[in-house]
């Protein structure tokens, strides 16, 4: 099955003369369904702006399955703010006839725009065979908070094969690029140098041009978790644990050390 979904936001002025972020060009294709939701209070990580665009992604009951090719394209237009979240975790499953499943996510955050992307964990079930590509293009003044969590196998189950490629470029220059490959085809992902047999791993990447060349400094969060200032106005929080709840807690702990506005807003935001 192939499915494509896309959305674009723009910054505009409402009837009362206030600046608002508006979703347009929302395009869904089952099972990838994008649905605008309406924030009741201030959104996390958005500098308390109430007029942000909020969209939830649903990717169907289960899947992608082997053979599925999904594509999601997101453009956060100049000056606008988008909070993109997910209704539930993604369960990667093998297809009836095997084969590769693919998810390609292409994101553009224009200047003065903010994307807060808080997907739920991706669970790699046994025998899955999945490739996930995340490509993010940022402008000089774009802001980004992007969470990513992987659970390697369901309860008492080894994972199938999963390759995840994340590539973040800022004004065309590389900012963050990592590929993680796990599963039986890559036995060494369990090495003490790579994943150490942890069942869950996650990252939060935050890009804030206000940091300039001086992002928050490196910090150890736990035995298997740390935050790293990247070579640019960005911080990566990285955590490995035995379950997704612990990973989430460690990632949140890292966010709490990011300083304002990220930390204070995280504290105010239960959904983060």
């Amino acid at each position: 099955m192939s499915a494509r979904a896309s959305l674009t936001t723009e910054h505009t002025i409402d009837r009362a003369g206030r600046g608002v972020s508006r979703v347009y060009g929302l395009r869904s294709q089952a099972p990838l369904v994008l649905r605008p939701t309406h924030p009741k209070s201030a959104e996390p990580f958005t500098r308390h702006a109430t007029n942000v665009a909020r969209v939830s992604l649903t990717s169907g009951a289960a899947g992608p399955l082997g053979g599925d090719h999904f594509e999601l394209e997101v453009r956060v237009g100049r000056g606008s703010t988008l909070v993109l979240n997910e209704v539930s975790a993604t369960l990667l499953l093998p297809g009836a006839r095997g084969g590769l499943s693919q998810m390609r996510i292409t994101i553009t955050v224009e200047d003065d725009a903010t994307l807060v992307w808080l997907p739920e964990p991706v669970i790699a079930a046994e025998h899955c065979n999945h490739v996930q590509d995340i490509d993010v293009a940022l402008g000089t003044s774009s802001r980004l908070l992007m969470r990513d969590e992987l659970q390697l196998g369901r309860h008492r189950e080894p994972p199938g094969n999963l390759t995840q490629r994340i590539r973040v470029r800022r004004v065309g220059r590389p900012l963050f690029q990592q590929q993680l490959t796990v599963g039986p085809a890559t036995p060494k992902w369990r090495s003490s140098a790579v994943g150490g047999g942890h069942k869950s791993l996650g990252t939060v990447l935050v890009v804030d041009p206000d940091w300039g060349g001086d992002p928050p400094s490196a910090r150890i969060l736990a035995h298997g978790a740390a935050m790293f200032p990247l070579a640019g106005p960005a911080v990566l929080i990285s955590a490995l644990a035995d379950d997704t709840l612990t990973t989430r807690r460690l990632l949140d702990r890292g966010v709490a050390h990011l300083g304002d506005p990220w930390a204070s807003e995280a504290a105010a935001a239960p959904s983060a």
Binding site: L180, L201, A225
Partner: peptide
């Protein structure tokens, strides 16, 4: 760009 998250930490 193969990652080694535990080495980084």
């Amino acid at each position: 760009a193969d990652a080694s998250p535990l080495l980084d930490i």
